[in-house]
C-alpha cells in the first residue's frame, strides 16, 4: 500500500471514531458513512442520526467541525470535504 493511501485510510478511521465519540457526548448516536472524493484524494462523510432532528443545520456543522478540529491536525482536516449531518428522512431527500 502506498504511503499516501495509508495516510488517507488513517484519516478516514480517525474521523469516524472522533465523530462517533464526540457526537455521543452531545447525545447523538450516529451512523457514519465515508465516500471517496476529489479523485480519491479526500473523503466526504455523511453522518445520519434521528438525534439531529431538533438541531439547526448550522448547529450540526458547528458541532461537527469543532469536534474534528479538536482531534485532527491541520493536514488531516484538509482531507475532509463536506460532512453532511442529516436525519434519516433528510438522507432520502425529504427536507419537509
Amino acid at each position: 500500500m502506498a504511503a499516501g493511501t495509508n495516510t488517507l485510510e488513517t484519516v478516514r478511521r480517525k474521523v469516524i471514531s472522533t465523530l462517533r465519540r464526540g457526537l455521543k457526548a452531545h447525545g447523538v448516536n450516529p451512523k457514519i458513512h465515508a465516500e471517496s472524493a476529489v479523485n480519491g484524494t479526500k473523503w466526504r462523510f455523511s453522518v445520519i442520526s434521528e438525534d439531529f432532528a431538533p438541531w439547526l443545520h448550522s448547529e450540526r456543522q458547528d458541532v461537527i467541525w469543532r469536534i474534528l478540529r479538536e482531534s485532527l491536525s491541520a493536514e488531516e482536516l484538509l482531507k475532509v470535504t463536506i460532512v453532511l449531518a442529516l436525519t434519516k428522512k433528510e438522507a432520502v431527500g425529504d427536507f419537509s
Binding site: 443545520h57 448550522s58 456543522q61 478540529r69 482536516l77 463536506i82 427536507f95 419537509s96
Partner: peptide, 29 residues
C-alpha cells in the same frame, strides 16, 4: 477559529440541505 477550508465546506454541505428544504431558514442560519 475556522479556516477558509472549513468555511468553504460549510457553504458546500449546507447548500445541499438548504436548497431543497421547505423549512424556514432561521436568523442564525
Amino acid at each position: 477559529k475556522a479556516t477558509l477550508w472549513e468555511t468553504f465546506m460549510r457553504v458546500a454541505s449546507w447548500n445541499v440541505a438548504v436548497r431543497y428544504t421547505t423549512v424556514q431558514v432561521t436568523r442564525s442560519e
